[in-house]
Each structure stands twice: as C-alpha cells, then as structure tokens.
Amino acid sequence: MARGNTRQRIQDVALELFAAQGYEKTSLREIAEHLDVTKAALYYHFKTKEDIIIGIFQDLTRPMDELIAWATEQPRTLEVKEEIIRRYQQSLVGAAPLFRFMQENQAAVRELSIGMTFKERLLELSGLIQEPDFAVIDRVRCVSAIFALHSGMFFMDNVEGDPEEKREAVLEVALDLITQAHSAR
C-alpha cells in the first residue's frame, strides 16, 4: 500500500493523535480536521475509530502473521527458533507506532477487538519457540525472550547508547534465553 494514499494518511494521522491525546479523547472530526478533509470523506474509508485501529493493526501485524506462517512450516530446531526471534524483532521495529499506541492506551485496547487477536498471536508465537516437554523454567525463558524484545522497544530509549547497539544487545539477550531453554533438554 502506498504511503501517500488517503487510507494510509488517515491511519498515520489517527495513530499520531491517538498517541498524543489518547484513543478515547480523539474524535473522527479531529482526525478529519487534521487531514483537511470532510467527515464524509473520512467515513468513506473508515466508519469508526475502531475501524481505523483495526486497519492499522492489520497492516502493521502482517509481518507477524507471515512469520507465524513461515515458522509453522519449519523444523523445530534451535536455529529456526533463533531465526523466529530475529524476524520477530524486525517486525516489532516496523510496528513500533502500533505498539506505542497499545502501550499508552491499554484500557482502550482491552475493549477493542484487536486486543484478543494480538494476545492470540503472541501465544502462537510463544508456542513456536517452546517444546511440549520443556520444564516450566524453560517455558518462562521462551516467553521472556519475546518480552525482552517488547521491553527493548520501549525502555531502551531511556538508556544511553547507540540505538543499533542497544537493539543488538536486546536481541542477544533474547537469543541467550532461547539457547538456555534448549540447552536444558
């Protein structure tokens, strides 16, 4: 989808406004005003704020869906699981605006249909890097690897250092957790 098209512009402006003033406090009228379009023009593309968020969510989580589809077809080796972690980190970078929205609007996200589908995706992804016979501590390591990548998206901004170096450090920690879980078998 081209970044310049109307639908994409609506999503970009809406996400900026949702992040700046909150999902609940942002109206469709404000979104239309920021775009300098009529409400009717906005309604042509999206009937509700939830429709906008669902569209953003679908666009930005497509790489995650593709990763899950790819991973499901792969052998369950340590190398594949490490690649899952690497690819997931890349998808998080592309979806950073959506994750910031979700972090800053947790109450609204719980009420939206996207909340559960994201949780389902995370559970599926987590299952792809675990094994049924893993001990509880190794299951925790696998889940923690995923959340290390998530926390790296938000909290490493407050840590001094080169952004690429910090991203690589977060990835290394996540990969270490996966390796530890597999080494215990």
Rank of each mutant, 00 (worst) to 15 (best):
E104Q: 14
Y23D: 01
D157E: 11
E79M: 09
E50I: 02
L15R: 03
P97V: 03
Q106M: 14
F18E: 02
V93I: 12
R3D: 13
T48W: 04
R141W: 15
T6M: 14
T72C: 10
F99R: 01
A107E: 13
V80L: 10
A148S: 10
S126C: 08
Y43Q: 09
L78K: 05
I52Q: 00
Y23V: 01
D59T: 10
E24P: 09
P75A: 15
Q58V: 14
P75Q: 07
G22N: 05
T26I: 04
S91Q: 04
K47Q: 11
D133H: 15
G127K: 02
Q90A: 11
E24R: 10
E168R: 12
D157K: 15
K39A: 11
L122Y: 14
E111T: 07
N105V: 01
E160M: 15
V140M: 09
E111W: 09
E104N: 13
L175M: 03
L171D: 01
I52C: 00
S144G: 15
Q106I: 13
I52S: 00
D138F: 06
E33G: 10
L67C: 04
A184D: 13
V109Y: 08
F46Y: 06
E83R: 02
R7K: 15
S27C: 03
R76P: 12
T61V: 08
I146T: 02
R141K: 08
L171P: 06
E79D: 11
E104V: 10
L98A: 01
L28Y: 06
I10H: 01
E24L: 12
E82K: 13
R29E: 14
A14N: 05
L17E: 06
L123E: 01
R76T: 12
T26Q: 07
Y23K: 11
I129Y: 00
E131I: 13
D133C: 09
L128Q: 03
A184F: 14
G22Y: 04
A20G: 08
A181D: 06
E73I: 08
R86C: 06
M64Y: 03
A40D: 07
H34M: 00
A20I: 06
I56V: 08
R167Q: 11
M102R: 02
R62T: 14
Q8C: 15
E165A: 13
D12V: 09
R185K: 12
D51P: 04
R100K: 13
L149A: 07
A71M: 02
